[in-house]
Design a protein around this nucleic acid. Sequence first.
RNA 1: GCGAGAGUGGCGGAAUUGGCAGACGCACUGGACUUAGGAUCCAGCGGGAUAACCGUAGGGGUUCGAAUCCCCUCUCUCGCACCA
Length: 836
Amino acid sequence: MSVTTDHAMPTKYDFKMIERKWQSFWEKNGVFRAKEDPSRAKYYVLEMFPYPSGKIHMGHVRNYTIGDVVARYKMMRGYNVLHPMGWDAFGMPAENAAISGGIHPAKWTMDNINYMRNQLKAMGFSYDWEREISTCDPSYYKWEQLFFIKMFEKGLVYKKKGTVNWCESCETVLANEQVSASGRCWRCESLVTQRELDQWFFKITDYTEELLEYCDKLPGWPERVLVMQRNWIGRSEGCEIHFPLENSDTYIKVFTTRQDTVFGATFLSLAPEHPFVLELSKGTPQESEVREFIEKVKREEVARRANQCTEKEGVFIGAYCINPLTNKRIPIYAANFVLMEYGTGAIMAVPAHDQRDFEFAKKYNIPIQVVVQPPGKTLNPDTMEGAYVDEGILINSGQFSGMESVKAREAIAEKLKSINMGGKEVGYKLRDWGISRQRYWGVPIPIVYCDKCGTVPVPLNDLPVLLPMDVEVTGFGGSPLANVPDFVNTTCPNCKSAAKREVETMDTFVDSSWYFARYTCPDSDKVPLDEDKIAYWMPVDQYIGGIEHAILHLLYARFFTKVLRDLGWMKWDEPFTNLLTQGMVLKDGAKMSKSKGNVVDPDEMIAKYGADTVRVFCLFASPPERDLDWTDAGVEGSHRFLNRVWRLVMDASTHISHVKSYAGDSLLEGPLRSLHRKTHQTIKKVTEDIEERFHFNTAVASLMELLNDIHTFRTEAKGDTLSLSVLREAIENLVILLSPMAPHICEELWERLGHKECIIRSPWPEFDEEAIKEETKVVVIQINGKVRAKISVNAHADDEEIKDKALSFERIKSLIQDKPIKKVFVVQKKLVNIVV
RNA sequence: GCGAGAGUGGCGGAAUUGGCAGACGCACUGGACUUAGGAUCCAGCGGGAUAACCGUAGGGGUUCGAAUCCCCUCUCUCGCACCA
């Protein structure tokens, strides 16, 4: 009998039949159903749930494939794995579909969910579909309303009138995080303007320090995500300084990080929105000019105003204050570049040492006073071309002259404190999270407005406040819910008199701030989070998603976790222990988009090549953090690989069906030993690549190598039982190691190899340290660092032996000839470098 | 401007406690099988007069030895950007 050939027509790799078969097998047998079991170690792997926009795209496919490999690997490793999936189902596209297509957002959303669920099932992902949740389901958002009320009671939710970001196109408010650096809406890219509105806010600033502090306690997160979050929180240490108003007993508070330059403060700049601007200018000759300026700035787009390049403009408001350390009288201006939301909305302007103030002073002819001298230079305010912003020695600063600026910051802060004119202060960029949205398709804010009782939260027994279904969504005229009398008109929970409901809905980022916790107990109907179940599953061991959520979703989810902890619903400080941010899927080097016409449709790919091929390609084409360029040729290659695996196993199966997998019972030599070694090296490589680095591309590559070696082996080896048992060992390991990546084909092959238990319930193989060892090693011989020869040495040879062998090697001898040998370096069983 | 990351064959990518550069795949070339091959198998595949030698964005340095460490320059990607 020969191992090499088999003349029987092999069965074709029928991926359609195979994938259908195993998907229904998994479903029927509840293979992926997760059950709490305190006797087993749990592993919670989660991918960011999708917005049901219509169809799954390649980004999802990649994201979920990565998660699926991790989930399946951990299952085979014996962990009790929770791997859920659901829908971030509230949001604007549903509403837009209603406006343009006349279809109800609920129907549109449900249709999309049904379609996309089937797509995910066709990919063979190992989700526990019994735990599926949808954020637009009242049984989900009911609890979100409960959290809102609890937060309201604790003062973590408040309503305030203020300037907010407004997207003209979405006709709704945006949180600061949701406005891009260029002042555009995160969703539709239109320019964002400002509006005065009464809005609900989550007090995320109560958690600023903790959110920042824990950025150093998340070793499982990519550094760049943490850097982005730290930047966003934007902590800066500085000083508050009080500038008394002339002829008044009030003062203006400013925040500065350069209190060492206070002696150079020659004017004050206030944000145009600062209440003092109107108040102080009242009755002065400047009043009308000031009013005009405020109006002008208000009209400016956020993008323009927040841009560094925008011309600095301002106006004198007709009032003066006193510099508390120089006692000099200095003018007060309103300036377009001063932001009301940061610090105190007012700054002391030091033109000599701040570029913005410098430009401003030049433009309006305000004196420039140098107070920090750079080492070895003298600054002349008349000839300076820009501000000197670096450190130096203080001059013109009274008792502080001669002091280094760094030290002066301490001393001046202390001085200000001692005279009760300010003191050290910490400033943050992070502001409270505005969550009101003037939209229909979202979670209703559970609040009632009563003329007598004011703002009253809906009693817990009355939850959920159901989102009404009979609503006409037009896209005009503000909150659609305001036009539903049955919804708006209610009675006050307190005094039972007529009252009105809040008609705005919550930002959908609230919905996704706690879904990961709800997966642990999706059916819990008495409490939002079941104490025992959440205690068993949380926190998420591995979270996987796109980098685009580095700030938005991930910061909100961290905040919400801390809130829920403080409300007593869970006991973790952070929701996600490890985070993997995968790169984008590109086509022809560009992001896929309809307008570019470079969209690859997952459905088509699955139909043409099967889910396993699509999965393998996603994993093989590049490591997860990097962008992946989709190529048809690459997919063909992955498909070819699976075909080769299929043929190999089918060809060999008749020969190896009666032998047992080699179990180390007899001594191996030659090709048998080599294949056995390769098998175990591959187990080691694939295990480490999955476990330690998520480098599935190299894991697949090593499986391809094993496949190639098995091929070679079959043409060389004899058909004796020992050979066949080694062959069987190699093939079985190839199939089992490949199974997390290409589960359908591997289940099928596993069954055809005669296994009764499915592969996902089989244990992950362990490698044998002994088998991996090479009996001979190839040692590279270098002369002056250049490779000149390679010799084979016994694995037990010591350095001296290797050195001798290298020096006596013919080719080396002839190259060295009679040149004197200066030194010889030997790297253990790897390399010899001869220096001549 | 600041911060982070990256730059390796025709392409995607391997190799990171400094030790054989280019694993694996794609594309390409030649061959086998074949009525046929866009299937499959075998072989080749950084450049080069196939010899020296040169090659990991460019230049310098450390070292017996550098894709890897250090310095400078360039390019690209991402994030932040009037935050006082």
